[in-house]
Simulated assay, not measured.
Amino acid sequence: MAKKIGLFVAGAVALLVLLFHLGPLVGLAITLAVLYYAFKKWLKAPSTFGKVVWALIGCAALVASASNVPALIALVAAYVLYVVYQKWNGVKDKRIVPEADDPFVNFEKQWAELQKHY
């Protein structure tokens, strides 16, 4: 029961932090989209003037992205919410393969048996 209360408190704090930093998060997403678009246009620009204009737009977007550093706090809060959700529902990490199902472990066992016989 104490574990559920701790998870609830951690989730509530992470949700509040995420909500308070939602503005910088949206600003970061917009400025990164502008930066990506400017970079793509800079690569395709046929003239030097076009490359300079798109480089200036990209630099402005980069500076605007750097000013949205509080958005990183929102990303951390979103990750904490994700972890709390997994722990609350008892979801196990699906990336870890059990040793019995791991083909490399079975191969090494069979290889060791072959080495014993020869």
Rank of each mutant, 00 (worst) to 15 (best):
V34R: 13
W111F: 15
E113Q: 12
A78K: 01
E99Q: 06
A74C: 05
Y82M: 05
W111L: 14
L25E: 07
F39S: 08
L19G: 02
L72M: 12
A38F: 11
A112C: 06
H117E: 14
A64F: 08
W42V: 03
F107Q: 06
K40W: 02
K3Y: 03
Q86D: 13
V63S: 09
L32R: 04
A100N: 02
F39A: 11
G90T: 12
N106K: 15
S47V: 03
A64V: 05
P98T: 06
G23T: 04
A55Y: 11
V76K: 01
S67P: 00
L19M: 15
L18M: 11
P70C: 10
L7P: 06
A12F: 10
L114K: 14
K109Y: 04
I57A: 11
A29M: 11
Q115G: 01
D93K: 06
A66I: 12
K51D: 10
A64H: 01
E113S: 12
S67D: 07
A64W: 09
W88H: 04
W88S: 13
R95F: 12
K4Q: 12
G6D: 02
A74G: 11
V17L: 13
N68C: 15
P24N: 03
W54D: 00
L19F: 09
F20R: 01
F49L: 07
D101T: 07
W42L: 14
F104M: 07
P46Q: 11
Y85V: 08
Y79T: 05
K109T: 08
F49W: 10
W54P: 00
V63F: 15
M1E: 08
V80L: 03
C59T: 14
A66Q: 00
F49R: 10
D102M: 08
L32E: 10
E113G: 01
F8N: 05
G90C: 09
L15K: 00
K44F: 13
H21E: 09
A66E: 01
